[in-house]
Amino acid sequence: MDQSLSSDLLPAADEVSFVGTLPEPAEPRSFLDRLFDRGLLIRTGVDGLYGRSGAFESVVEALDRLVSRIGAADGAEVLRFPPGMARASFERSGYLKGFPHLAGTVHSFCGNEADHARLLACLDADEDWTAKQAATDIVLTPAACYPLYPVAAARGRLPEGGLLFDLQSYCFRHEPSLEPTRMQLFRMREYVRMGTPEQVLAFRELWLTRGTTMMSDLGLPLAIDPANDPFFGRAGKMLANNQRAQALKFELNVPVNSEDKPTACLSFNYHQDHFGTTWGIAQADGTTAHTACVGFGLERITLALLRHHGLDLDAWPAEVRARLFG
């Protein structure tokens, strides 16, 4: 049953019982509501911004370890950055060309004492208090690999065999949604390969296979589909069409919210020389480096597991539990 789009994708009438103290809901409770009911996610008052329970985190951490095990033999260099990056790097990265609508900048109060008094008065009056908030040198990380490129570029030319990095970070995207799979702050695990076009494409092929095996071993129904990034506006339509026409991005989709619109849990991206050119990353022979990455949406995979195996982790199939927690 787990391999088909099981009844678990339908509103779960049989799970209403655990909210027994509440009145019978007029409509079937959504997957997000059930996650709240169960305490797996915790409301904050903002769509897409949630707390996580210990049980939820135990799955995220198990997935993180699983990805490490699968990639262990490759000897990737592990780097961890906080979920903010230098604004100067962010500006140079080109992110604002494609995704101005998703970016999150960190602003802080930069006024004097009189401004402080006005801020408090505005707060009291329920008026806009942000007049003296100014952009700091920090921008929220939009994808785990964004802080990496300037660091790699600063090291000089790549060695002959290229480089491989292992990253994980909370990432921010401003896209409030009631779909639990579209969080505004979420964790992305990545491997990033830099080198020749052949090296980075071979890396992407390898992870297409590994990622498919990993997810089907977790008992999840999946499909690999060509994809495009959510570029902004009409110009974005063109970028998206180009990305698809060149087969630069694939996603591993699992039905979580619905069968019609499955959720991208992994993505496999070939950037060509985009980041190499942007950051001046050179191969050993001096030509511009190509890059590729595989990204794992740790919360999304967790949610896919909860959707397909149920909200009680102890009741998950033994082989799935063994793979994650064994």
Partner: peptide
């Protein structure tokens, strides 16, 4: 490049 083609379109 891709961004150049967007500028061209506009």
């Amino acid at each position: 490049d891709s961004f150049g083609s967007v500028q061209l379109m506009l």
